[in-house]
């Protein structure tokens, strides 16, 4: 997981897990089925327009509300390569790391990046580049322990490696 690159879907503050994947679809946990309804209650066009590699950029407290892991699973299965936000709600943050959905916290980038821009993220350096405007931003690095989980490919693989 060195680099993500894609077009931006832009959302605001407090995108909650109920709009990421409404509970009426939680009678399944099949990633593809969940992805088909991803962001449905906030952006009906998302699932028709999203292409593999695309990036979600949001403001504060992304992923607040329910602990449903179905939310990052749906985003990942929809093909999104990275979510950039000013802040993430803590359960979503954990879940994303645990299932291997790339996330980057960055205070400055969301305010400057617009919907439809092409953005790339270098995970080794934390540098976010808005290729449309040429601006670059520095995302917050993960603590080494979390980076280990990410590098292992998620929490289960990390624990397996440690216990091996």
């Amino acid at each position: 997981m060195e680099k993500a690159r894609g077009r931006v879907f832009r959302y605001g503050d407090n995108v909650d897990t109920d709009v990421i994947i409404p509970a009426r679809y939680l009678n399944t946990s099949e990633p593809k089925e969940l992805a088909a309804h991803c962001m449905e209650d906030i952006d009906q066009n998302f699932i028709h327009e999203v292409r593999t590699g695309d990036i979600i950029v949001a403001d504060k407290n992304f992923g607040c509300g329910s602990s449903r892991e179905h939310a990052p699973i749906a985003i990942k299965a929809a093909g999104v390569s990275c979510v950039i936000a000013q802040t993430f709600a803590r359960i979503f943050y954990r879940n994303a790391i645990n299932i291997g959905l790339a996330i980057v916290e960055c205070e400055e980038a969301p305010a400057r990046i617009k919907a439809g821009d092409v953005v790339s993220v270098d995970f080794d350096t934390g540098i976010i580049t808005d290729e449309t405007t040429g601006e670059t931003f520095k995302g917050q690095a993960f603590p080494p322990f979390m980076q280990e989980i990410i590098d292992a490919g998620g929490l289960v693989s990390y624990i397996n490696t440690k216990q091996a």
Partner: peptide, 18 residues
């Protein structure tokens, strides 16, 4: 505290959480 399903799985398997 609330966690996701993978943390729950790790908790059920190991009895520990970070």
């Amino acid at each position: 505290t609330g966690v996701g399903s993978t943390d729950m799985a790790a908790g059920m398997a190991t009895g520990r959480a970070w």
